[in-house]
């Protein structure tokens, strides 16, 4: 599948934003006063900037962004619609929480709002993962672990942001870095399983099935229907060379998992927060963009069986 930059930016930026929102809300729900009013507000603002920038970027690849509100209507059947509903709904408790912090009001209300915000963040990222996981036309996406990988990576990247901002505000604590580290390790484990599985799966459908004529012995494309690639080939026929993909996978391992994990450990052991988290954030950001680029580039679409691919 063609890796569109707007979609890569959207899923990674909003993923990190929702991750940050999740940890902030969780910390607030458990210990409402621990972070302090202004650091909390600042973190909330950063989280919403990430989320909103991502959502705006995702509208760039629409043909008619001005009609985007219509996308909230089909939540009964469409994961894309559900994602939109969850995203919009999450703004409500998150915004109210910010308002309370801004006005310094109503201690009692903050906990339920924080819990709702955390739930909204999880729901939105889960829906993002399910948009891909629900497509049976792409075996690399149509997997149960896809939404969990999205969730684990959002939690890990958001946790790194949380650590960085907490460090800057001088309110760094211990539990969240350890949880972030755990999410990073879970994501690494899931991703390892994912790559092993997609490499071992040859694809259930063949070009002969696509043509459908019973009893064919051999089939080979002779003339393409068009002289230059059409939309279907450009959008769904993107492929990345095996060697190239392996190199990028190795880079992803280092940038997204190994380096941030070591840096987080270092941070926990030494108590250094800002420089360690800054490096971890830069490395993880590069890594997660690579991971998302590969998620698209390695995805093979069944329609390409008509264009010369023999299995998908």
């Amino acid at each position: 599948m063609h890796p569109a930059y707007s979609v890569i930016f959207f899923t990674t930026a909003s993923g990190a934003g929702y991750g940050l929102l999740f940890w902030l809300s969780l910390a607030t729900a458990i210990a409402p006063d621990a972070l302090g009013r202004w650091p909390s507000l600042a973190m909330l603002a950063v989280a919403l900037v990430f989320v909103t920038a991502g959502l705006l970027a995702s509208t760039f690849h629409l043909g008619h962004p001005e009609r985007a509100p219509g996308a909230l209507s089909q939540w009964r059947s469409s994961w894309l619609s559900r994602e939109g509903v969850a995203a919009v709904a999450t703004y409500v408790p998150a915004g109210l929480m910010g308002l309370l912090w801004l006005l310094g009001l109503a201690e009692g209300l903050i906990v339920p709002l924080a819990l709702l915000t955390a739930a909204g963040a999880v729901a939105t990222v889960y829906c993002t993962g399910m948009i891909y996981a629900s497509l049976r036309t792409i075996r690399q996406w149509n997997r149960r672990d896809v939404p969990w990988i999205y969730l684990a990576l959002a939690a890990a990247t958001g946790g790194i942001l949380f650590g960085l901002l907490g460090g800057l505000a001088g309110v760094a604590g211990r539990p969240i870095p350890m949880l972030t580290l755990a999410c990073l390790l879970v994501a690494a484990g899931l991703k390892h399983r994912y790559w092993t599985a997609i490499d071992a799966d040859p694809g259930a459908y063949t070009a002969k099935m696509a043509i459908g004529i019973p009893g064919l012995d051999t089939l080979r494309p002779l003339d393409a229907p068009h002289t230059m690639p059409n939309f279907v080939m450009r959008e769904m026929g993107f492929t990345v060379a095996r060697k190239h993909a392996e190199k990028l996978r190795r880079l992803t391992w280092i940038a997204l998992f190994a380096a941030p994990a070591l840096l987080l450990l270092l941070g926990v052991l030494t108590g250094l927060a800002v420089p360690v988290y800054l490096l971890a954030a830069i490395s993880a950001a590069t890594g997660v963009v690579l991971e998302r680029w590969l998620f698209f580039a390695e995805a093979e679409h069944v329609s390409q069986l008509y264009y010369g691919r023999s299995r998908a």
């Binding site: 599948m1 690849h61 629409l62 043909g63 008619h64 962004p65 009609r67 985007a68 219509g70 996308a71 469409s78 894309l80 948009i131 497509l135 049976r136 036309t137 792409i138 459908y205 059409n230 939309f231 279907v232 959008e235 769904m236 679409h301 069944v302 329609s303 390409q304 008509y306 264009y307």
Partner: peptide, 19 residues
Amino acid sequence: TCIGCKLCSWACPYGAREY
């Protein structure tokens, strides 16, 4: 009412939709 998100074309195994 189509917003041009292209998701339907991704869901078609036959490559029958063109943006």
